[in-house]
Write a protein that binds this DNA or RNA. Structure first.
Lengths: 190, 190
DNA sequence: TTTTTAAAAGAATAAACGTTCTAAATGTAG
DNA sequence: CTACATTTAGAACGTTTATTCTTTTAAAAA
């Protein structure tokens, strides 16, 4: 029997997310990927085949382990509380780092249809999540009855991407929370 | 007397913006930059010194010719009308392309302090522009007196970056306009 | 027209990069 | 303990990249 490989794919993915967040896709060179992960070159290419495929897998891991659990808050359908929980979790995850998916959309989105499609699915899921929460909140009477649910959801979805960008430059978490409050205040019943 | 150079730096900058928007910084190779601009290699390095400096100059051109005229709307201090004019102009400029400055912030923002600083200045200017318009609008009675001007300005600034990202993936301009309306409606006096 | 000077074109260069290959090391089964 | 299969480490390879150099071309002043 042969020896078993020493590396833990999940741990590697975790570091890959950091590396791609720090340096972008093209800015992250194989040298650093090999050095900072517990990989050896051969293992890397046996496991992933190419740097490009490695990005896709990392993105998939990031979606599953970072984005999906946050979006999950919206899918609990607890109205406005879910939306607030979502933003709290989102700010914590993004602050000082930004969002890997959004970074890949801005870097590769024009050329790479795979990234485009992942990005669009993510936006759709957000949009549907917000709609569900807002409808629930309207039934509960916690948001104003007169708001246009789809339009507000579109606005919230857009806002989330703004957070992803601002998180890279923001000096403090505070301003992100203040912006969220300004966003939610007007739709909440007094 | 020697012959004069044939290239027009402004025209080149215009194309450079397109190239960097399409392929990102690292994704844009000198081969294409030389081929798509009316440049020859020697002229390029005589004029800019390096690809990196070329990016900075392109970014400066982009700020002056694309972003600044749009932000200018906010500096007219015509209250809510200025804000609406700003968003109309912004959506037109970004749709299907995204924002070069924001793309460079997401791609290079962690490593490159020059880009960081350009990005922060831009966000500050937006923030101040929104504050000026909102205060003016409050004096005119066109936005509600009870809103927290700084918080709403923070929210609008954040929203703008979300537009920059969504513009890359959005199918139609319509959804961007709808989101803007949802954003502005709650602060406008009935 | 001649001379001069710089631009244009693109070949050349050296470094960096993604990927593959080689040889040594090591865990496991018999 | 031996033999094997596979990992590990990192040297090697072929491309691609940014940058420089060389040669040819052409505008403009004398």
């Amino acid at each position: 029997m042969p020896r078993k490989s020493l590396y833990d794919v999940n741990a590697i993915m975790e570091q890959a997310v950091d590396i791609f967040l720090e340096h972008s896709f093209h800015g992250a060179v194989m040298e650093e990927i090999i050095a900072r992960t517990e990989f050896n070159r051969r293992g890397f290419y046996l496991e992933f085949g190419s740097k490009q495929q490695f990005l896709y897998d990392t993105l998939s891991y990031y979606h599953e382990h970072t984005l999906a659990p946050i979006v999950q808050h919206l899918e609990n359908h607890h109205g406005i509380a879910s939306i607030e929980a979502f933003f709290d979790a989102y700010i914590s995850a993004m602050f000082g780092r930004g969002c890997l998916l959004i970074n890949m959309v801005t870097e590769l989105g024009h050329d790479d249809t795979t990234i485009q499609s992942i990005g669009r699915h993510y936006l759709d899921r957000l949009q549907l999540g917000f709609i569900g929460c807002l409808e629930q909140a309207q039934r509960q009477g916690t948001v104003k009855a007169e708001i246009n649910v789809e339009a507000v959801a579109l606005q919230l979805t857009c806002f989330v991407q703004g957070f992803a960008v601002n998180s890279i430059l923001a000096e403090t978490k505070e301003e992100l929370h203040i912006a969220t409050q300004a966003l939610l205040n007007p739709i909440i019943t007094a």
